[in-house]
Structures are given as C-alpha cells and as structure tokens.
Design a protein around this nucleic acid. Structure first.
Lengths: 150, 150
DNA sequence: GTAATTGCAAATCATTTGCTTCGTA
DNA sequence: TACGAAGCAAATGATTTGCAATTAC
C-alpha cells in the first residue's frame, strides 16, 4: 500500500505539472480533485467529487464544474457520459485510453481489460469523413454478475 | 425521391408493427415521431422532436419523454448521448447498428460508414467480465471539414 | 498588481412525476 | 369498458452564468 501511495502521489504530481504547463493555476481545489481522481481511479461525477470528505462543504459546486471544464479543455481529464444523467470524469494518463463497461441494472462501472480495437480505425475514418483530430468514446453496457437477470 | 418515400413509409410501418407486437398502443404521437425519425434518419433529441413542424405545440414534452422511454425499453429506438447534455434517439433497424461521428465545433452528426469493429469483441468481453446481454456505444469526435481549425 | 479562480445566488436546461382526462384495443 | 397514453403543472437534478471577493503567479 505504501508503494501504491507513492505511485499515486507521483501521478498526482504529474497531472498537476501538466496543468501548470498548460497555463492553469494550481489551486487547492485542483489538487484535492486530482488526488481524489487518482486515488479512486474511477470515473467520478461532480456530485461525487463535491461530497468527498476533503471537499465537502468547503467548496462550491460551481467551482468544481468550472474546474472540470478547464481540466477537460486542457486534456487533463476525459468526460464520459456512461448513459447516466450526470457526466463523469477520469484522469487522462499519457498514452492510455480506457474503455468502460456499465451495469444497466445497478450502475457499477468497470474498466474493460482489452486493447482498444477502435484506435487503429481513426485514421481510416478521418480520411473517409474529412473530420480532423479524431477521438472516440466506447462504452459497453450489460448486466453485471452480481445482478439478477431481468 | 418517390422511391425514397416508399421505402420510408415501409420502414415506418415496420417500426409501428414492431411496437404493436411488443404490446404498445399505436397512437398519433407515436406515428408522427417514428415517421420523423425515419425521414431525418439522424439521431434526434426530444426537443428537436418537439419542435418539428408536425408535433410542435400539439403535444406535451412529458408525453414525448414517456414515449421515447417506452420505445427504448421495447428496443424500437436506441438512446445515444455520450457527450451531449440531451439524449438523442435513433430508430433501430433489425440487424443494423450505426456508429456516429460528431463535430466538436458545430455539432453536426454523421453516420460512420464502416463495419462496426466492436461487435465481434462483445463475446470476449462478456466472458472476461462476467457481464451478460452486452451492448455497446461507440462515438467518434472531431472537427468537421466545414469548421475552421481551432 | 493583474488576471485567473472562487463563492454565492439565481437562471437555465433536461428530465421526471403526480394526477386527471382521453383514446385505443 | 379498461388500461395504456396524453395533458398539464410542478418538482427534481445537472449544469451554467453574472458579479463581487479572493488568490496564485
């Protein structure tokens, strides 16, 4: 666990460093939020961030929304839809792109352990469609092993 | 164009038929909505449906929301909306699964003309994760040819 | 010091819900 | 006729915005 914590704090530092290099100011809220994202390692909604122990009642929702928007614009986090009403955010690690699988019954989200099959197609689609700077989002939905069948 | 209209009305009839066979009642609003989805052939939000010429001011938003929910539950339409705030809906044609590309600048949505590369993986992911009844959602994002570079 | 960030309050947008009325099977 | 669907109004939840007070660089 201590090695995990070390890895985590390195990740936090790297992310904060990236923010700085993109011209963002490094604030307390930013640090806490990035740390939370690293520690949980899962997509979090703004309301989950807000209600985390460190942030609860000490920061305003609007500030968190604005922060996440900034982080997304600078490519620090990725915004996911996950078919939920509220958007979720995950840290972007360099050269990593995770896909997720969501339980349509209980809502748990898990990372899909597979090489993303879509990335190689982006070039083809870009030239066929004329679109530039392609990205993609891939999500799977199903019923998780812990939920009863419908 | 007349041949297009013929194909369209056949599609509408088929979709309505499917609704009926699933136990839904065939109402005026359902007919108009399905016709609109067929005619435009693109994902539409509830507010786009509401503001269409035929439906505007004659039906209630809540009714459209409830209709779309029913249609989705019965597998008649597919709900999309990975990055937009409002969900969009497209008709599901049997054995067809379309993926879309969205312009992050102006918002246009186009169908991606490529065989979906993800479907074959669903079996693998299902057994690796333990999830059942897998589906997926794949969307591409980029800047369309008509938008200037950022 | 100055521009970016936050706090607070209010506005907006998407969606849902309760309850009554209507229309289809 | 009975039950699903629509109308209407109000509630909820997520996100955005304006403006004044703060704070990082």
């Amino acid at each position: 666990m201590s090695s995990e914590n070390k890895m985590d704090s390195r990740k936090v530092q790297q992310a904060v460093e990236r923010c700085k290099s993109k011209g963002l100011r490094c604030t307390k809220l930013m640090g806490l939020t990035i740390e939370l994202l690293v520690r949980t390692g899962k997509p979090l909604t703004v309301s989950e961030i807000i209600s985390s122990a460190e942030i609860a009642d000490r920061y305003d929702q609007a500030s968190v929304y604005r922060l996440m928007t900034r982080l997304e614009e600078k490519g620090i986090v990725r915004r996911l839809g996950l078919r939920e009403r509220a958007a979720s955010f995950v840290l972007r690690h360099l050269h990593e792109h995770d896909d997720y699988i969501v339980c349509t019954s209980c809502g748990v989200v898990e990372r899909v352990e597979i090489d993303c099959p879509v990335a190689p197609l982006e070039g083809i689609i870009a030239s066929a469609s004329g679109f530039r700077n392609l990205e993609h989002e891939l999500e799977f939905f199903g019923v998780c092993p812990r939920c009863p069948a419908a």
